[in-house]
């Protein structure tokens, strides 16, 4: 139960890696843009997804 609780506590980070990252990568590819700093779309998606996920977990919100 503690493991389950721990994993659910990581929810926003898992969401950032599991869903947000590929969505960002797909949006960049679909819009024909290049990811900044020479990163690939997937690398940029992962970086952004993890950072936003960590912030959302700490602040308990994605919005402010």
């Amino acid at each position: 139960m503690r493991v389950v609780g721990f994993l659910f506590g990581l929810g926003p980070i898992l969401f950032g890696v599991g869903f947000l990252a590929p969505v960002i990568a797909a949006a960049i590819t679909a819009s024909g843009l290049d990811a900044p700093a020479g990163l690939s779309a997937v690398q940029f998606g992962l970086l952004t997804g993890i950072i936003l996920g960590v912030i959302a977990r700490q602040r308990r919100t994605w919005l402010w």
């Binding site: 929810g11 599991g18 869903f19 990252a21 590929p22 969505v23 990568a25 797909a26 949006a27 679909a30």
Partner: peptide, 18 residues
């Protein structure tokens, strides 16, 4: 639900999942 969303997104259907 979130495993399915992640599986869809990482298998090339990210915008459909979204």
């Amino acid at each position: 639900q979130y495993s399915m969303l992640a599986a869809l997104a990482w298998s090339g259907h990210a915008l459909e999942a979204l």
